[in-house]
Design a protein around this nucleic acid. Structure first.
Length: 302
DNA sequence: AGTGGGGCAGAATTATGCGT
DNA sequence: ACGCATAATTCTGCCCCACT
């Protein structure tokens, strides 16, 4: 049977007949006169090649064919009512939605603890899925409906397809172990900074703002260790004389969990603007709007 | 591509017949 | 008397085509 040959309103009539077992009552229930309802039943009979409802005493009793169809038709009615005709809204208190957020490992450390704590109270059924994407893939993932939000520094997410909201500026600071000899010598001068041994993180596919700035200004450092993950920094800084130059939010997390100190960086690198990004596809989506509002409330500076 | 008019098919309504 | 089916009539929505 071709879907196009069926008037789906006939399923409404069928469902009403199952519920009321009377042409007149079923018609009243769905706003049809008795003759119109009778005609709808006649069309259903022709469609399914079965009487569907036969008069037994005072009721129109469903035939075996009608009984076999009834449950499936009811499911269609419920699905249409609940998932198509319901006004689009988002109820955080009862939602069991899973939000997917693109963010690098720094972002996971910075955003997720606070966001999760907030969700536990405001939306206890909501789940979070944090994924890491490089600069090019972040846009494709948002556009492909595989993520709701990107949090962090994504300079490539431009154009009319994407919206963004600035959350805060991240500047670079230096991270040394708490009993590092340099800390006894006062503030960190450029000369002292360049004389130290450095650990540098090159996360895969991410923008290396500070490295690019050093190249442009011609400063040369003694790099003793290169890493691909920020997570490894904490035990390494804590147990060596190496210095790392990292975004302030990461440095603050390291300081919270390990014996390290934050020192102002003597090289004035441009600040890194941290935004939340979303695709125009989810711009009007009630759940996405709600999530963006929570992120802005929790992390937007000023 | 969008709009408006004519024609057509089918669904709804009214009136009525028929069976229980 | 009540409820279902049917004939005649009316109404509505869709399609096609011409026009802008």
């Amino acid at each position: 049977m071709d879907m196009r040959s069926i008037d789906l309103n006939l399923l409404v009539a069928f469902d009403a007949m199952c519920q009321h077992q009377s042409v007149t009552r079923a018609g009243e229930a769905i706003g049809l006169s008795q003759p119109a309802m009778s005609a709808a039943v006649a069309r259903l009979r022709a469609l399914f090649n079965d009487p569907l409802f036969v008069k037994v005493g005072t009721v129109m009793q469903p035939t075996e064919r009608a009984q076999a169809l009834a449950e499936a038709v009811r499911r269609v009615m419920v699905t249409v009512q609940q998932e198509i005709l319901q006004p689009s809204g988002f109820t955080p208190e009862t939602s069991d939605r899973t939000f997917t957020v693109i963010t690098p490992d720094i972002g996971e450390m910075h955003f997720l603890p606070l966001l999760l704590a907030h969700l536990a109270k405001a939306a206890p059924g909501v789940r979070l899925n944090a994924v890491s994407r490089n600069r090019e893939a972040a846009g494709e993932t948002l556009a492909g409906a595989d993520a709701d939000l990107a949090l962090g520094y994504f300079p490539d997410l431009k154009g009319s397809a994407f919206f963004q909201q600035k959350l805060f500026d991240n500047k670079h600071v230096c991270l040394l172990r708490r009993d590092h000899p340099q800390l006894r010598k006062g503030s960190l001068t450029l000369k002292a900074y360049l004389a130290l041994q450095h650990v540098v993180v090159h996360p895969d596919g991410r923008e290396h703002v500070f490295e690019r700035h050093l190249q442009q200004t011609g400063h040369k450092r003694d790099v003793r260790l290169e890493l691909s993950h920020f997570m490894s920094l904490m035990p390494i800084i804590e147990s060596t004389d190496l210095v790392a130059t990292v975004p302030r939010d990461l440095a603050a997390i390291c300081q919270r969990y390990t014996q390290v100190e934050i020192v102002a960086c003597p090289i004035a690198c441009p600040v890194i603007p941290v935004h939340q990004f979303w695709h125009r596809r989810s711009h009007k989506d009630a759940a996405s709007i709600w999530l963006r509002a929570q992120v802005a409330q929790l992390f937007k500076a000023g």
